[in-house]
Design a protein around this nucleic acid. Sequence first.
DNA 1: TGAATTTGTATCGCGTCCGATCTAATCGGG
DNA 2: CCCGATTAGATCGGACGCGATACAAATTCA
Lengths: 163, 163
Amino acid sequence: MTSSPKIETKAEPKIEPKDRKLSSFLCFAVYSANLAFGRAYKPILDKVGLTYTQYIALIALSEADELTVSALGEKLFLESNTLTPILKKLELSGYIRRARDPADERQVRVSMTPAGRRLLDEDITVSLKDATGLGDEFPVVQKSVARLRDNLLRNTQGEAKKA
Amino acid sequence: MTSSPKIETKAEPKIEPKDRKLSSFLCFAVYSANLAFGRAYKPILDKVGLTYTQYIALIALSEADELTVSALGEKLFLESNTLTPILKKLELSGYIRRARDPADERQVRVSMTPAGRRLLDEDITVSLKDATGLGDEFPVVQKSVARLRDNLLRNTQGEAKKA
DNA sequence: TGAATTTGTATCGCGTCCGATCTAATCGGG
DNA sequence: CCCGATTAGATCGGACGCGATACAAATTCA
């Protein structure tokens, strides 16, 4: 769309600086959609005393138990500086347990408590699937956004980690 | 393994509680894609001394100048508690101006400085369009995510504001 | 007009994110 | 075996996002 090459120009002939509408920014769509998700989850999660991030971390843990902090972080794209306080709160809430691995005392193994498992089995977020209003598109959008994320991480992690 | 009730229940015949994979969650895709965007923008925005949110706010302001804080908040889906500190930093950085409206001293009019306008004209984020790796899908995904956001806000704002 | 209410912004506290740094445990070479 | 390097978490400070609240300006209405 940016290039409709009738005649070959060296660079862009002329770019209007004005046509940078916020609505055209994919990053803003994702940013604001994330805010919207947080607000949608809030009244539901308030009832069980969890935050949005804590709930997501709990789901990640439900897939594979006894994960280390860094292994959990790989699933969530987070590191210990973010994860540690969250896990401490989840432990305080009684949904998970944290314990140093006897085989390697540097590592912390995180596991779900029965209370945590019970919470997820309730499936408190069923109502939200309708709220997305995506219908059959739901899995398509989900995959597109996941692909977007993976592309962004791959194409920038290169610079971040390389430096 | 926690419970596999063979007896037929009235509503859902049988839902495996285990198949709630993190990767199947749209909210997680959006959540992590937002993190990825923030990380992708960071090295670029660091060079001009802006944060991700500050940059988005600047773009919103470029569309319509002399906005009030709440009008800007409507564009950004943010309120004064979040916006005020951000705008103060943008003012301190010299990219915007803040001034009480003489006609209504309650309101604060926000406008861009020439430095702010110059910054946006540089279009420092061009390189990121490729990093999304979406190609022609780009506008489709953007619209889907924006629609998702609008649906979520509409379907939950009702409860939030009504209460 | 004057008191009550509403409105627009700002402040505060908590919970993420994240870069930078710290500490303790493990590993590896000599 | 000891010492330096690496690794896994944790801590700290800065910047959001947001509910609750404060405060002053504007509006309403008796």
